[in-house]
Nucleic acid binder design. Structure first.
Lengths: 113, 113
DNA sequence: TTGTTGGTTAAGCATGAAGTTAAGTAACAA
DNA sequence: TTGTTACTTAACTTCATGCTTAACCAACAA
């Protein structure tokens, strides 16, 4: 298992680019070859492949080459790692608000509505 | 409402840096001043403030200045926007697998275990 | 009013990311 | 075996990011 921290770096970095998000979006609907993935974009093929490399480095996408065609697919486990990081922070925040609510309720019960 | 796409760019970009994630983590436990936020990091104050600007630009954090102290807090709505984007893609992926399962069950019922 | 604290502004620098073109390779099709 | 397809590699340009230091300003404390 790689360093989790570094992994999140690569993950969020990968998702920070609209082209790469569009690729993830495409792959969430099913596997695709490199040129299929490239088709919607007004960009050279090498550029597309560089985006793909970023996605693969982050663990969000994997690929295998059969013959001369490289087929790419989404790696949903990786997606949920990013999702979980966000959710953990939101949860911490929400819990803090709850404790604050309790505190206010305990210390000034007469001012409650 | 700003362009959602651009907003996600800034959001994920902001979360791609470990220093900024640490700041979000800190702020998820409650508000903090700029210098409080800066304390854990081995980095000049201007550098910390630049990270803060990235977080504010993304909508993940807001701040107000009172006297000479600027107090920062997390903006959990923004967090859940990023979370939702990820979740939507995972959901699409899962549904695709479900349909694939149905398809296989319908076309080759005799090969099921 | 003088010093200290808390933050801001500006300028500069090193690195890396996003794109390009050009040339190369390996598989399949005729 | 010759051409086309599907990438791959390499070299290069441009722009953005993440820092730095130095100087500044405004609020509060003595």
């Amino acid at each position: 298992m790689l360093n989790q921290q570094a992994n999140l770096d690569l993950m969020f970095q990968a998702l920070a680019d609209p082209t790469r998000r569009a690729m993830v979006d495409r792959l969430s609907r099913g596997p695709a070859s490199v040129s299929e993935l490239a088709k919607p974009f007004d960009m050279s093929l090498p550029a597309v492949v560089q985006h793909l490399q970023a996605l693969e480095a982050s663990g969000l996408v994997s690929s295998q080459k059969v013959g001369r065609v490289r087929t790419c697919q989404i790696e949903p486990e990786a997606l949920s790692l990013a999702e979980q990081w966000i959710n953990d922070r939101r949860t911490t925040w929400v819990r803090r608000l709850d404790r604050l609510g309790e505190f206010l309720a305990e210390t000034e019960p007469e001012t409650r509505t």
